[in-house]
Amino acid sequence: MNEELIVSGRNIPGVDPHLHLWHWQIPLYLFLGGLAAGLIFFASLYVIMGKEDKAPTAIKWASFITPLALVVGLGALFFDLHHKLYFWRLYTTVRLESPMSWGAWTLLLVTPLSIVWSASYLRELVPSWDWKFKWLYDFEAWVIKNRKPFAWLMIFLSVILGIYTGILLSAFNARPLWNTSILGPLFLTSGLSTGAATIMWLSKDHEEKKLFGRIDLLLIAIEIFFIIHMFMGFLSSSQVQQEAASLFLGGEFTVPFWTFVLILGLLVPGFLEVLEWKGYKIPAAVPAFLVLFGGLMFRLIMVEAGQITRYLY
């Protein structure tokens, strides 16, 4: 027998018997951050490569989702704070050691920039749009003139944003399930995949749809590779990490993880994209929805399960 019991009647809500302080808000925030990173990445990539005609939806239409996702994500983060009135304290200091801090700053930078990005395409999409003020027209002209450098800046920020959504968790070495450096690239890939799937879904251009279906397929493959890698890492690591992995290998998260994340979120959409490649008619909405659903479930499960894993008691 080996039993450790707190006997002084400690019963802290959200902490005992095991941590449960982060609910759906943080996973949603991570999901939307990843989605935004994916959308920005592809839009910027095609501008940088000078192939705007290959990805019109990615660059123009889909870019309107980005600020929306970021604002809703920030809203979820704010909603999760227990001491909301002090929110501004996030922006009175820069703490490089704290992923939460540089994430907050990155978002403060990315959100307005993503609004500028989509606004600069507004008149192209809605020709009757009127900016009313001359300085807005001037600003628009300036942005249009500097699309390439702007895209470079955005692609850089999108990678930081995407990796950040993983590092936010992996920085916590107190939670063995999160404490793996593969979470950064894994969440980045997953974020890119949700972005690619969204573009594929929205696109009316057959060639572009196909292109992003292929890209998404590649990302799904990389993601599966990373997930296998993550488990291999856990199983050959310390006892607490082996126990963390066992939550997914027979433990209480086995069914949701393998069903929602791996099968429905990765394998099925991957398979549908392969079928589509082979010439079968598959409505893009189906794999796209599954990828988005899987991405959200993945974060929900990781945040939930990670809080159960610990060193003591």
């Binding site: 809500p13 959200g14 001491h83 909301k84 939460m100 920085a171 070495n173 107190a174 610990r310 008691y313």
Partner: peptide
């Protein structure tokens, strides 16, 4: 206390569960 936003990151970060909201 008056600089804390209640993000709970520190509680998640403590291997000893020594903090409380």
């Amino acid at each position: 206390h008056d600089a804390c936003i209640g993000c709970m990151a520190c509680i998640e970060a403590c291997p000893y569960d020594a903090r409380y909201p």
